[in-house]
Design a protein around this nucleic acid. Structure first.
Length: 565
RNA sequence: CGGGGUGUGGCGCAGCGGCAGCGCGCCUGUUUUGGGAACAGGAGGUCGCCGGUUCGAUCCCGGCCACCCCGACCA
């Protein structure tokens, strides 16, 4: 491709819109064009790169036994009402109405439809296992699109679904996909790590995410520096400090004038925060819920939501708190009647806690469970943080930011139960099909890759996903000798199967070099009068500082070796 | 949805109750040519939209919309 003909111009100034490096560079390099918040058009450079990523995914999916299909994006809303996800996804689901007033959705993912298709086409245990995948556009009306291609509302995603007869089969399919994912990310030049994850709205049990550690990431990742424990903050567990067991003392009221926060309370009474209990108040699907957790810990809302099985969980407003008979600042589960209480299991790792008296300006000393109050549910709902103890080895955990580039789930029978997708086994007995699902965001993978591979001058594309292999730069294109030599080299490179972006513009050297650095193709070749006189061309890898020169007639071979390396 | 910010030529920005500007980019010509060239000439704008105030609004007032950032939210 000749740069003079390329659709898309590079920018000299940083675009004001962009905050993230990947976003900035993609706009600056003329790779993407924004149509609306979280909706982008891909220019040729981005599209070529995306297609390469897709191809890598396709190859690895096929190698793992996957079969590619193509599904409708426009789907009847019924399908989503049946699975309950019409409600669960709420406004995130794009809804449209056809001319006959039938309600449709733009599919955000494809479990429902595919399960129906499988139901109609799997008649026997002999048809299992199988893995089906698609690479298609999905629509999600995200509350806040951000960061260029990092979080968008219309995006291409590879979605794979496995169907097995039983859990053992699911485990095998799942492992095969995990391995395929490792291959994909490695081939794309991405250092993705695997972490335990929450399965969220999609449901299911085991779930892991592939994360690229990056400051620009939206997810908080908890890592153990000593062992291999790694989890998304939404899911991460940790060893909670157990306080020395004391004999239970009688409950006593103490005056705590003006004390509102846990920190103030601990200071005022001269006890550690872990010796206190705090209350946090939520509305879960309209029901007021009193959450109790040890004072040194914070509530993890994802865990809480899972414990409650709620669809809509939010903090209660001050009015709702008051209406429930709770005194904020001195809130207490002690003596609370008719209110759902959910407690973190940390409240059992100690005794004689300080807790609110539900009376402004007063707290209780020596509260004990279950003597003084009982919780409807006691489970782990605490948020892991840096410095807490690793659940496996006890080392001090670290937190990082990360970009989620892939997610794998063991769905189990959630969708097959709903859609009654069953198969008869050897004995003719009917069982629900065991499902797994596996997603990779293609555009996000590109953005994440650029986020990881860049320097102050621009992108450094990993070879397998670079839009072109080579940037051929002709300097002094008015010089016929240069033009002829560059044209010839362009043809030779192309003939050798090296995709080449040929900068044939009559720009100055500085402009061309800067654009070449910005676009970040793996290899740059320079043809110039100076070099021509010596019968050489200059070759430089984007990742290295210094160019090397080679005789013109060896250029193609040398470049070939660099690209294949 | 809450908080903050921004809308002026392709991009980055300034401006101001009275002719809409600058830099970059773009077009033409001349001279240049190894890290974002110089000179000369030129094109390009419904100043986000609607309404109000005013002799007159890009500017002041009201409403709306869009986009960005933080939070909520989010396979």
């Amino acid at each position: 491709m000749r740069v003079s003909r390329l659709f898309g111009k590079t920018l000299r100034d940083d675009p004001a819109e962009a905050e993230l490096v990947s976003h900035k560079l993609m706009l600056k390099a003329g790779m993407i064009y924004q149509a609306a918040a979280g909706i982008y058009g891909y220019m040729p450079l981005a599209w070529r790169s995306l297609r390469k990523i897709e191809q890598i995914i396709r190859e690895e999916m096929d190698a793992a036994g996957g079969q590619e299909i193509h599904l409708p994006v426009l789907q009847p809303r019924d399908l989503w009402q049946m699975s309950g996800r019409d409600k669960m996804m709420g406004p995130e689901l794009f809804r449209v109405t056809d001319r006959r007033d039938r309600e449709m959705v733009l599919a955000p993912t494809h479990e429902e439809l595919l399960t129906n298709m499988v139901k109609a086409n799997v008649n026997s245990y002999r048809d299992l296992p199988m893995t089906i995948y698609q690479i298609q556009t999905k629509f999600r009306d995200e509350p806040r699109p951000r960061g260029g291609l990092i979080r968008v509302r219309e995006f291409d995603m590879k979605d794979a679904y496995s169907f097995d007869a039983d859990e053992e089969g699911l485990d095998l399919s799942y492992q095969a996909m995990v391995q395929a994912y490792k291959n994909i990310f490695a081939r794309c030049g991405l250092d993705a790590i695997i972490v335990d994850a929450d399965s969220g709205a999609i449901g299911g049990k085991d779930s892991q995410e592939f994360i690229l550690l990056a400051d620009a990431g939206e997810d908080t990742i908890i890592l153990c520096p000593t062992c291999d424990y790694a989890a998304n903050g939404e899911k991460a567990v940790f060893k909670k400090e157990t306080l020395p067991t004391e004999n239970e003392l009688p409950l006593e009221e103490v005056a705590t004038p003006g004390v509102k926060t846990i920190q103030e309370l601990a200071e005022y009474l001269g006890v550690s925060e872990s010796k206190t209990l705090k209350g946090v108040f939520y509305m879960a699907d309209g029901q007021f819920t009193f959450v109790v957790i040890r004072g040194d810990l914070d509530v993890n809302e994802v865990k809480l939501n899972n414990a409650l099985g709620a669809i809509d969980l939010r903090l209660a407003t001050p009015q709702e708190v008051t209406a429930a008979g709770v005194v904020a600042g001195s809130a207490s589960p002690v003596g609370l009647k008719g209110t759902r209480i959910v407690a973190d299991d940390s409240i059992e790792l100690g005794s004689n806690f300080v807790v609110g008296a539900n009376k402004d300006g007063y707290h209780f000393n020596n509260a004990n469970v279950p003597r003084d109050f009982k919780a409807d549910t006691i489970t782990d709902i605490a948020m892991a943080q840096a410095g807490y103890a690793c659940p496996n080895c006890g080392a001090s955990l670290q937190t990082h930011r990360g970009i989620e580039v892939g997610h794998v789930f063991k769905l189990g029978t959630r969708y097959s139960d709903i859609q009654e997708a069953t198969y008869p086994d050897r004995d003719g007995e009917s069982h629900p099909i065991m499902m797994g699902c596996y997603g990779i965001g293609v555009g996000r993978l590109l953005a994440a890759s650029i986020e990881q591979h860049n320097d102050e001058n621009g992108i450094l594309f990993p070879k397998p996903i670079a839009p072109y292999d080579v940037q051929l730069v002709g300097l002094n294109m008015q010089n016929d000798e240069v033009t002829n030599a560059a044209n010839t080299l362009y043809e030779e490179l192309t003939a050798a199967g090296l995709s080449t972006l040929y900068d044939d513009r009559s720009e100055t050297a500085g402009v061309k070099f800067n654009d070449a650095d910005l676009l970040g193709l793996p290899v740059r070749v320079v043809v110039s009068p100076r070099n021509l006189k010596q019968g050489i061309v200059e070759i430089k890898e984007r990742s290295s500082e210094d160019p090397t020169t080679v005789p013109s007639d060896e250029a193609v071979d040398v470049i070939r070796r660099l690209i294949d390396a």
